[in-house]
Amino acid sequence: MADFLTIAAIVLLISLLLGLIRVWRGPGAADRMLAAQLFGTTGVGIVLLLAVITDNGALFDIALVLSLLAAVAILAFVRRLKLQQSAADASSLSTKNDTAANKKEGQ
């Protein structure tokens, strides 16, 4: 069973790292933030698996703390940043990705 759980943890880590691509590509700020949200959830899953694999009860506390604070970053994003401004920011930076982002957001 331990082997199976380890494989499960590895697959979760892979799915987490796939999320990195979405953080990098965007295009919108909301997409990046959503990917970060997925990181939080998957992180909780991995910590739970590790807790069972290493048989260390203390790790459940870490999973608990992670899940308590899962929404904080997205709360800050929603309450403090404007979407349009990200477009203005990006245009001054003029990277290829971000101009593509503007087009997409404008649609």
């Binding site: 909780v44 739970l48 459940f60 899940s67 308590l68 997205i74 709360l75 929603v78 404007k82 979407l83």
Partner: peptide, 27 residues
């Protein structure tokens, strides 16, 4: 504790999904 993790993540994800969608709609 394990169950609570799930409940918390459920609440966090549903609220943030709503907030992000709402923000997109408004802005």
């Amino acid at each position: 504790k394990i169950l609570l993790c799930w409940v918390l993540i459920l609440a966090a994800s549903s609220v943030s999904a709503y907030l992000v969608a709402n923000k997109l709609q408004n802005e």
